[in-house]
Nucleic acid binder design. Structure first.
Lengths: 228, 228
DNA sequence: TTTAAAATATGATATTTATCAGCTTTATTA
DNA sequence: TAATAAAGCTGATAAATATCATATTTTAAA
């Protein structure tokens, strides 16, 4: 079993603020899991007995609307924590997390995190800062969802994905999403997302082969994102 | 000048976790302000040198989209704190706060709050819990904005307003919002919001005189909110 | 109180987006 | 590898929503 004290991944999340002793304790009680692409890490309504630290891979965090349509709220990748919100509120999970690639995650039991929250103010403050940042992002997303057209949101999404995941060796955005996933990020019907992608391709603003999407004209895509 | 130690309002926010000494210190450096309906408390892009504690009144928290349209993210009322997010992230404000009624707010300088965050873990943890709750609400709003129709969102909004602000003496929802504000909560054009309100009135699901809106058929409104 | 400005209301129309159907391509698995 | 399922694509159409124009009502200011 890998040791948290030696894990690079913790540098990217609040665990970096823990002392060596605290890390050793976590290391002793954590469990590692391999999660296959498509598998659910946790479901909306489930009670989480701890948090997840993502060692490798990417997952989507989503929620069903009352209409029975699925909305992806965010993509979470290597280095991030998952399930902190529910732990802090001591509530069942509000969201569902599903692997978009094969993943390696560590599960840290609730009691251990709570102990650290109570004893280590640096840790609490770092969690607080992370959450403040998530809240800002969420607020911005609310504005975009409410005020931008589907086409704008698609352009936005492609630009965000590029920024977040970079390029693969073929100069395509380095993440594989189904058309349905893309639609569920944007908040539109799958058919609409497909149609708009095709249009962008026809206009030579993007190109794609299967799930590999390449941005050909970033300037133009930025214009579309801004509503022109 | 009113003393924080004796102020009822702090029971409703994280200040309730402060010790008597800490409260006395805050009391000594805080300033009280009267803010008239329509006045701006702080603007997007402004650097906040502290946080606000709302003693009386209601304000809207909003943000301009790139399209130049305004989106109201939340309504904040008596008892809540304002500006915590920016303080914790040490960033300029992401949002604009505007009074919807005459208000009385106290301004607490940043240094004082930071001191307490560093020294009082109960305070930090309570702020964290509050923020976790805001994040849940924000996530849910993202889903609604992305997946629900304008009509559903209007119904939702009316029900939320009722729950949040209760009834006035005329059995109308106890908050006065312009049609534009309602549209900016829903994320739609003002004309569309007005039209849908008129429809609901025609169907005898709501009634209104000016800005006073009464829900006549709550069951039916709930059905609409759910998409029927 | 009169006047001007702002907010509200509603019709006509254009645009955006969803839905549904049918087809093709790609992936899965027996 | 053949069979089947799933995902992707596109056209036709319907529904939702925005926009614009204009009228009316309410509010604020002179």
């Amino acid at each position: 079993m890998n040791k948290c004290e030696q894990c690079i991944v913790r540098q990217f999340n609040s665990l970096k603020t823990l002392t060596k002793d605290e890390l050793i304790k976590i290391s002793a009680c954590k469990t590692s899991k391999i999660i296959k692409k498509g598998e659910v890490i946790f479901k909306e309504g489930e009670y989480l007995n701890g948090v997840f630290c993502i060692r490798d891979g990417v997952c989507k965090v989503s929620k069903m609307s009352e209409n029975g349509r699925n909305q992806i709220i965010s993509l979470i990748q290597q280095g991030s924590m998952l399930g902190e919100r529910s732990l802090i509120s001591d509530e069942i999970s509000n969201l569902t997390a599903t692997a978009l690639s094969d993943m390696e995650v560590c599960f840290i039991p609730k009691e251990e995190i709570i102990k650290d929250l109570e004893k280590n103010p640096n840790f609490t403050l770092d969690v607080l800062k992370t959450m403040a940042n998530s809240l800002k992002n969420a607020d911005n997303l609310i504005v975009d969802m409410a005020q931008k057209s589907v086409k704008q949101r698609l352009a936005d999404t492609l630009l965000h994905l590029l920024e977040r995941f970079g390029l693969n060796t073929d100069a395509a955005i380095n993440i594989q999403l189904s058309r349905e996933d893309i639609a569920n990020i944007i908040g539109t019907a799958t058919a609409s997302a497909i149609r708009l992608l095709s249009e962008l391709k026809k206009e030579k603003i993007i190109d794609f082969i299967g799930k590999d999407i390449t941005i050909l004209n970033k300037k133009e895509l930025e214009k579309i994102a801004q509503g022109f």
